[in-house]
Every structure is written in structure tokens, then in C-alpha cells.
């Protein structure tokens, strides 16, 4: 399998943390027919700025078109293709797996030693395992858990960050508006 054919692109976007912004991005992806592999959103250290990480399949669309379209959204402060430069990326999964006999329990513990994974909940019948790693590694781990018996699985999708001193940040501070009727909750995606 050639790596180029499956080339994934990671786009990172800083957006204003305002009601409906996530909806604007998702609506854009849908109406431009952009298929996305994963999308994560979370607040940053600045309460008025959220950061999104979007993973797309480079086979199906030109990532530059997507970045250009993201810039058309007024609430998108900065968007860039983070996978073009040196970067780190992490995906996280919680996997509930069968551990109701010694054999399966031993197999899970052994896997957790070989992968950056750990058991975070242990019961009589099942255990929950957490793995945080590159996507490929997470997938490999899941594949190896399959024969043991996966009961339930959840993943966060990829978060990524460029390496070194180049930062993706913004000086932006929102305008303050004095409210008569008390402080309005302006910051929620």
C-alpha cells in the first residue's frame, strides 16, 4: 500500500469561541462536499478562542481549497495545513475489552506493555483500556485487541501541533460590550 495514495492532511483552525461557530464549519464541509475523517474542537488557553483539528483524505479533495474556504468564514481566525510541516499528532481511544478469564486478562496486560496504553478501569467481566498515540499506532492496538473481544470503543480523533518555535496563535481580544442586563454567555461553541 503506497503511503501517498492514502495521504491524510491535517488542518488546524483557530476560531472565535462564539455560539454557532461549529455549525458554520460543519455546514461549510457539507455544502462544499468536503468529506472529513475526523474533527476535534476544544477551548484553548484563551477563553475566546477555540482550536479545531480537521483530518481529511487528500485523495478526495484539495486541502488548499479547504483552507481557502475556511478563511471565508468570518469566525475563522487562522487556518493552516499543519501536516505540511514538522508536527506531532495524537489520537486517543478508550476500549472496553473482555477480560473474563486469565488468558484474556494476560493478553490485554501484555498489549498494554507493548503499546503506550494502560488499563484505567477494571471489573470482573471487562476492562477499559486507554491508548494515546499516533493514529496508526492506535489502529494497530485496536486490531490486536479485536481477537480478545472488544465490547465498546470510543475515539477522540486527531489533535495536532506544529513543532518548534513557529506557533499558531492570535493576538485577538474580543471587543467588550457593556451589557445592561448582566453579562451574557458569549463563549460557547
Amino acid at each position: 500500500m503506497s503511503t501517498n495514495a492514502n495521504k491524510k492532511h491535517i488542518i488546524s483552525a483557530l476560531v472565535e469561541n462564539k455560539p454557532g461557530v461549529l455549525n458554520r464549519l460543519v455546514s461549510l464541509f457539507r455544502r462544499r462536499n468536503f468529506n472529513i475523517d475526523s474533527l476535534t474542537v476544544g477551548r484553548t488557553h484563551k477563553p475566546h478562542v477555540s482550536r479545531m483539528t480537521i483530518v481529511i483524505d487528500g485523495q478526495r479533495l484539495n486541502p488548499r481549497q479547504m483552507v481557502a474556504n475556511l478563511y471565508k468564514l468570518v469566525n475563522v481566525i487562522d487556518a493552516r495545513m499543519i501536516s505540511e510541516d514538522l508536527h506531532v499528532e495524537r489520537d486517543m481511544a478508550l476500549v472496553k475489552v473482555r477480560t473474563d478469564d486469565t488468558e484474556s486478562f494476560n493478553a490485554v496486560t501484555e498489549l498494554c506493555e507493548r503499546f503506550p496504553a494502560r488499563i484505567i478501569d477494571m471489573g470482573m467481566q471487562v476492562a477499559i483500556v486507554e491508548i494515546t498515540a499516533r493514529t496508526e499506532l492506535v489502529e494497530e492496538f485496536i486490531n490486536q485487541l479485536k481477537p480478545i473481544g472488544i465490547v465498546e470503543l470510543v475515539r477522540t480523533g486527531v489533535v495536532a501541533m506544529g513543532r518548534g518555535v513557529r506557533t499558531q496563535d492570535t493576538e485577538y481580544e474580543p471587543a467588550s460590550i457593556s451589557m445592561n442586563g448582566g453579562e451574557l454567555e458569549r463563549y460557547s461553541v
Binding site: 454557532g20 458554520r24 455544502r31 468570518v74 457593556s178 451589557m179 445592561n180 442586563g181
Partner: peptide, 14 residues
């Protein structure tokens, strides 16, 4: 949303 360049829901007169 898909037929405007941008839109607003204004939640206070200020």
C-alpha cells in the same frame, strides 16, 4: 447560514 456571507442573532440591544 448557507446563503449568506455571514449572519447574526443579536441577543442584547447593547
Amino acid at each position: 447560514l448557507p446563503v449568506t456571507k455571514h449572519n447574526y442573532l443579536v441577543m442584547s440591544a447593547a
